[in-house]
Simulated scan of single mutants.
Amino acid sequence: MATMDAVSGLRSFSFDTELNEEEKKLLFLRARSAGLTFCGCAHAVYLCSLVHSLRRIIKSHTVNTGKDGDLCVGILGMGHMGKQLLLSILGMTGIKPSHIKVSTRTPQSAVESVHSEVECFCDNRRLAAWADILFLCCLPSDLPKVSADLHSHLEKHCLVYSFTSAVPVTRLARLLGHSFILKPQYDFVPSESADVWLSCSHVTTALTDPLLIEASSPLEMTGAISLGLNWVCGVLYSLLNICTSASLGSSDALSLINSLFKEKSTHAVQLTAESFICSSYASSLLREEPFPWISLSDAQTKETPLLCFLSSNKSMQHCISAAYKSLLETPVKYK
């Protein structure tokens, strides 16, 4: 027999009944917090799915080196964001739990919320040396110690993805001595549309909601939250760097990256060498020659050929948005 909420619909029992007018003005913070957590997890899942797919395609197109092609994901910090991120990656990607590791100051207390196959320890340097993608979910106050731990221990190919607020990507690059860093920069403008995020009490459940997926689409965001083109540029340059680290020629790199998007949209748009680098360099780049390594800290803070291309190409924006929605609406789950 179904249970009934005895106070459902009774306004006098809602938590905000006793708030004064000044306090009610702060209610938007609930929606802001829920929305930023949801979008952060959704966009991280999107990135992991793209990188995981690309690495598998690269492995199938290159000589077997004996290395495992699966993506290795590290999460540094197991506070609210770290826990939600872990659950999202486990539930929404095809990444094996054994390919996810967590470093936290209190691994004993975090074990209960971690999948049995996810290794949890307290060793930031060990995590940095192992991970292909390293998510920073630490507080700004912890960043000096974390930076000291990670400095000189990050492999060049390791993509650092920072959720640490109030620390710009340029400063983080200096602290870590590392330029392969991606940091989403969200803007929030309080409005009634932000209420859409109030249903995100459980992020993993919310990630299956088509309306919330639509609202979080990076280039078409609604719900009072926005994310600039620079983040999308950073994602695409990350994919390019992964191809470069695998010594793929520019022609093969473009073909593989385009393959991640071409089946997700009816818009037939192709990324070319000129989309990523200046036309003079692109014209001299041989098909079998890899692209140059791109500094993501520069790519997110300066005007790049890719930013100019995306800004003026609505078809490519639609293509990227379609890929985002498709990946989240039909996630590949680990079996």
Rank of each mutant, 00 (worst) to 15 (best):
L236C: 06
L239N: 04
S49H: 06
F121M: 12
T330F: 12
P168L: 04
S33D: 14
L328R: 07
S193E: 15
K25F: 01
L127R: 04
G234M: 03
A215G: 09
E119A: 11
G79M: 02
W293Q: 14
C319D: 02
M316H: 09
H318Q: 14
T93K: 06
S279Q: 15
L254D: 06
N230A: 10
T272E: 13
H178G: 01
D68W: 05
F291W: 08
S255A: 08
S217L: 06
S14T: 11
Q108V: 09
C308N: 15
D252A: 14
T272Q: 11
Y324Q: 05
L54D: 05
F261P: 07
L239H: 03
R105W: 02
L254R: 02
Q270K: 14
L211H: 10
N241C: 07
E288C: 08
S280E: 15
R171Q: 14
H80G: 01
L19H: 05
L36D: 03
P107D: 08
S279T: 15
W231D: 09
L296V: 00
S216G: 02
S193W: 00
S179P: 00
L139V: 00
L260G: 04
L248Y: 04
P190G: 02
D209F: 00
P218Y: 07
S280K: 14
S251T: 04
L143K: 03
A110G: 00
G177E: 08
C138F: 00
L136C: 09
L198E: 15
A148W: 00
S245Q: 13
V111D: 06
A253T: 15
L36P: 01
L219H: 06
G91V: 00
A273V: 01
P144W: 12
T205D: 11
G249R: 07
H43S: 03
R174L: 12
T104N: 08
V102N: 06
S315G: 00
D132K: 08
F121G: 01
N258K: 05
D209Y: 02
L90P: 03
G234A: 07
P190L: 09
L236M: 10
A323N: 10
D16G: 01
M92C: 07
Y324W: 06
N258M: 06
S284N: 14
V7G: 03
K183Q: 13
I95Y: 07
T301R: 04
P140D: 06
F261Y: 13
S247C: 12
G223T: 01
Y281P: 00
F291E: 11
C233E: 09
V332G: 02
P305A: 09
W231R: 04
C308V: 12
Q270H: 12
L90M: 11
S315W: 00
E289I: 02
S326H: 09
C72H: 13
Y161N: 12
C122R: 12
H80P: 00
I100N: 05
L159V: 03
S147M: 07
L327Y: 07
L176W: 10
V232Q: 12
H43R: 10
L27D: 08
S311I: 01
P140I: 01
K24Q: 11
D70F: 05
W231V: 08
H202Q: 11
L26D: 07
M78F: 14
I181E: 01
